[in-house]
Design a binder for these strands. Structure first.
Lengths: 224, 224
DNA sequence: ACCTGAACACCGTTCAAGT
DNA sequence: ACCTGAACACCGTTCAAGT
């Protein structure tokens, strides 16, 4: 029953590595990384799964490319006077990119082959720190603590996916309901007295920690 | 050719949820989380894959149980005078547990159903912070920044798996060889002048960031 | 109560064959 | 040069059948 002239009617855009990667990222954003298979990605591109192997070596290289695409969305630190502001902006941009593509965080653990966008980003961060007067050693420290915090927060955020206060309350209920009341009194207190209060927004935690680290780096910058 | 009396000779230990989880963790430590399948886990236990479903509901619940087992290996913060020391010790213990079981980090992103060991650990951390004079709000801040840093560092460490200086050098060579010389001058400088120097140990970065955050928390503890 | 065999609807990847 | 069909060795999970 399928129209045999489909191909002629709908002249297909030729496949390319870029189109494969962009479609894979869109698929993972929509459905998660688990359901992403070579066959379904082929479907999404109107092609058989096997055709993909003309543009990526295998699934592992596909995942590497997807992660690098996410990195390319993160703003590079700006040049200019205030290094803390520059670091702050790229950290905020990184968090935004990682919450648009939460599957990328879990992938980073197993990826050991950074792409060009990833390396360019790292290079720009180190450059900006050196310009701001950090020694090589201190730049390495600063880079490590900032990146660990950024990724760790994104990881945390992805695993506690409450978009709204309503969802937060429901999730907390579901988790707590599986255990005796007051089995975890301090966790319960913090949840009830703080997290579930109307004004609470988990995003604010990000800024708190970020500023704490940046202030700490400033005071420690000239000690080595 | 298989001896038909095998079963009689080797009386099998009965399966249990605990034995399933412990074997799954050992398997993932050895071979990674990717190769862990219900069939291979069955093999490792001398049982058909389908028998596992009598002890865990499905693979997702198996993974939840594995993550909770890793949490149970992390030391709870000690009571007593020095809250910074208590937080420091549990952070060091957490990093050790996560580097024994690097697959656990990537798993946390997708797990939204914390187990009893996870909740007990979180409860103990919040309790210790409250005892040290942190307000509920400040305890939430402190918890967030410390945990983000810990997980983020572990994530970083898992994705840059250099056990020895030799391996570090080789990995750096391999990565850099794929790109033009001096495409990333500042990254290259930091790598050559610092990371590849004999005395370098990435572990030291952990302590630097940890102490920076703990000192920051101390100065900020009484502001709210 | 627990374990199994067969079956179903999936995977990643290869390879020879098509255009 | 790029795409495909068939095949191989895998997956998670169900279900009726065994003990």
């Amino acid at each position: 029953m399928a129209p045999p002239t489909k191909r002629a009617i709908e002249p297909r855009i030729p496949l390319s590595r870029e189109r494969v990667l962009l479609t894979a990222v869109a698929f993972a954003d929509e459905s998660g990384i688990g359901p992403l298979s070579m066959r379904k990605l082929g479907d999404a591109l109107g092609v058989e799964a096997m055709s993909l192997y003309n543009h990526v070596a295998n699934k592992s290289e596909l995942l590497d490319g997807m992660v690098d695409l996410v990195f390319s969305e993160i703003d590079l630190p700006q040049g200019g006077a205030d290094w803390k502001m520059a670091m702050r902006q790229r950290a905020v941009s990184a968090r935004r990119a990682l919450s648009r593509h939460p599957w990328a965080i879990g992938l980073m653990e197993s990826r050991t082959s950074p792409g060009p966008a990833t390396l360019r980003h790292h290079d720009a961060v180190i450059r900006r720190l050196r310009e701001a007067g950090f020694s090589i050693e201190m730049a390495a420290h600063a880079f490590s603590v900032l990146d660990s915090y950024m990724y760790g927060f994104a990881l945390h955020e992805a695993s506690l996916p409450f978009e709204t206060g309503q969802e937060t309350a429901e999730l907390a209920q579901t988790i707590m309901a599986r255990f005796p009341v007051d089995a975890y009194p301090h966790l319960t207190e913090l949840t009830v007295e703080h997290v579930l209060k109307p004004g609470y927004d988990y995003s604010n935690e990000y800024e708190f920690g970020l500023d704490l680290i940046l202030d700490g780096l400033e005071t420690v910058r000239d000690t080595t």
